[in-house]
Every structure is written in structure tokens, then in C-alpha cells.
């Protein structure tokens, strides 16, 4: 069992009425890997995650967790699930919540006590272990939410948007917790809306849209395969671009809106001086110039035709 992959998903289909939530999703990932799952709302991310924990029964296709079906008790013991919502008992204390989820995963006695103690230390909640959970700050609840999914020491952790609504400081603390889990050898499936999270944390990224994985790879692979070696050049002029120059720039592949010009360039060292000369010849003064490397955001836009947060 230990030699089996943490997660193997093959040709997964799931429909809710007429809506196809998953349309032939196949995915595997290796031990210790963090796989980011990026997609707009309604793309099928949560359905996919719920299929892995056995909460959604697929219409067809298979899910294997360390080689076993998701509803096998050994699979459940090996998987941790951190929900998008703060899925805790608000009237119970952090210690009681951790204890409850530990028991639900089969822990008891001294191992449970030890796991609760470690989790409280790990989340920085030891001093507030006996307060009601509903009285904790949003960031604290988020950390406790993660700890409730990891109390039993899972080898595969599913994180469904774990940093939604969290302030930058708390988010940083959560990133540290995830790094620590990775160092501990835990494989992570990380669903997020935030590009910077995916870029920072994930070894590979899967982009999902309309229930299909439309791209899968490292960030560099995704950029190269989607946008090639192009970079984006943006030029801001002090006055609107005159019509003759506009026509000339558009003929060279640029897009001109009033006083903003966008170019996609592959050889900046050669192309930028040529463009600057064209502006100078027409007497147009440049206010600002920026050259940007292609981002995941641009990849996403290119692939789905939508902003991620639409």
C-alpha cells in the first residue's frame, strides 16, 4: 500500500442534473508533492475534492487513495480534509474541537492527548485552548480548521481554499504551517483562488474549468506551453497617441487605447529601442514603460478567457 501513489484519479465524471461538475478528470500525484488546483467558481474544484474524501459518488471513473477506494476506512485514516468553511463546533473550545476530530479518526487515550497538545502548539493556540472557538479571530479559526484536518497525521491532505478571508499576517502563518507539513512528507492537494499562493507553494498546478483539467504542470511549463517566451510591454504616453502612430503601432501587433499601448515581445533588447524610436520620431513623449514576464494570471486568462475571480 505504501508504494501506491497518494492519489490517482481516472476519468472521473459527475453531473448534478444537467450541469456537468466533473467531465473526465484524470490526475495523479506523487508522495510529498503539493498540487495546486486553480479554477474559477463552479469549475468543479470542490466536487473533485469531495470525491476524493468519498462525499461525492462519481457517475463514472475511479478514485484511489494510496491504492484504495476513498470510502475504505484505511483511506479515510490516511486522508485529512480541510474544508473551505470553518467546519468546527463553535461552542466547543479549540482543545475540545481537536479532541472530537481526533476521536472521529480513531484516536483515543494518551495518543489523542498528545496529538491535541501538539496541534495546539503548532497552531499557536495553546494559550487559548479552553476558550470558545466562536470567540477566536478569523485567522485563529482558520489555523484551527487546518489542525482539525491534520490531528490524526494524514499522509494526504486536501485543503479547500484554506486562506479565504484571512489577513496577510495570518495567511503568512498558514503558509508556514503548509511548508512544515510538506517537510513532514505530507502530500497536499491545494485548492485556491490566489495565484500568488499557487505560485509560491505548489510544485505543480492543475487548471480546471467546466469540470475539465485544461492544463497541468509546473508554473514555468504552463507559461511556456501557453504563452511561449513572450513578455508584455506596456507604454504610457503623456498625451493620447495620434492616429498615424496608432495605425503604425497596430500594424506591428500592438493594441492602443488612448494613451496606453500594449505589446507582446519575444526579443525585448531589440524590439524596445525600435519602438522608442517610433514614438520619438512622431514627437510623442513617454511617461512610463514596463516590461513584465508572463504570470500564471495571464496563463489562466489565456486558457479560460476569464479572470480567476470572475
Amino acid at each position: 500500500m505504501d508504494e501506491a501513489l497518494p492519489l490517482e484519479i481516472t476519468e472521473l465524471h459527475k453531473s448534478f442534473g444537467d450541469r456537468r461538475a466533473l467531465d473526465g478528470v484524470s490526475l495523479t500525484f506523487a508522495a510529498g508533492e503539493i498540487l495546486g488546483l486553480l479554477g474559477p467558481n463552479g469549475a468543479g474544484k470542490t466536487t473533485l475534492v469531495r470525491s476524493v474524501v468519498g462525499r461525492v459518488r462519481p457517475d463514472s471513473g475511479t478514485v484511489r487513495v494510496f491504492g484504495r477506494p476513498p470510502d475504505d476506512s484505511r483511506s479515510k485514516a490516511a486522508v485529512g480534509y480541510v474544508t473551505q468553511e470553518i467546519a468546527l463546533y463553535p461552542l466547543l473550545s479549540p482543545a475540545e474541537n481537536l479532541s472530537a476530530f481526533g476521536r472521529f479518526q480513531g484516536l483515543a487515550g494518551p495518543p489523542l492527548d498528545e496529538a491535541v497538545g501538539q496541534s495546539l502548539q503548532w497552531t499557536g493556540l495553546a494559550e487559548r485552548a479552553k476558550e470558545r472557538t466562536e470567540r477566536l479571530s478569523g485567522g485563529m479559526k482558520r489555523r484551527l480548521n487546518i489542525a482539525a484536518g491534520t490531528i490524526h497525521g494524514p499522509r494526504l491532505l486536501l485543503l479547500d481554499e484554506p486562506t479565504v478571508g484571512v489577513d496577510p499576517q495570518s495567511r503568512e502563518r498558514i503558509y508556514q504551517m503548509i511548508e512544515e507539513l510538506r517537510r513532514g512528507g505530507v502530500s497536499l492537494l491545494y485548492t485556491t483562488h490566489y495565484m500568488e499562493e499557487a505560485e509560491r507553494l505548489c510544485d505543480r498546478i492543475a487548471i480546471i474549468d467546466h469540470g475539465k483539467i485544461i492544463a497541468l504542470g509546473t508554473k514555468e511549463e504552463l507559461v511556456r506551453s501557453t504563452l511561449g517566451a513572450r513578455q508584455t510591454l506596456t507604454i504610457e504616453t503623456e498625451a493620447p497617441v495620434p492616429a498615424p502612430l496608432k495605425a503604425s503601432l497596430e500594424a506591428r501587433g500592438g493594441t492602443v487605447t488612448d494613451s496606453t499601448v500594449h505589446f507582446s515581445v519575444t526579443e525585448p533588447a531589440r524590439e524596445i529601442p525600435e519602438l522608442l524610436a517610433a514614438f520619438r520620431n512622431d514627437g510623442v513623449r513617454i511617461r512610463d514603460l514596463a516590461l513584465k514576464t508572463a504570470t500564471l494570471e495571464a496563463v489562466f486568462l489565456q486558457l479560460t478567457g476569464r479572470e480567476l475571480r470572475e
Binding site: 469531495r50 462525499r55 486522508v79 480534509y81 473551505q84 470553518i86 467546519a87 472521529f104 482539525a148 484536518g149
Partner: peptide
């Protein structure tokens, strides 16, 4: 979402 989470355990 607590029910979903509990049912994802053992």
C-alpha cells in the same frame, strides 16, 4: 460544512 467534514473521517 461540519457534517461533510465529520463524514469524511472514519
Amino acid at each position: 460544512g461540519t457534517l461533510d467534514r465529520v463524514l469524511s473521517t472514519r
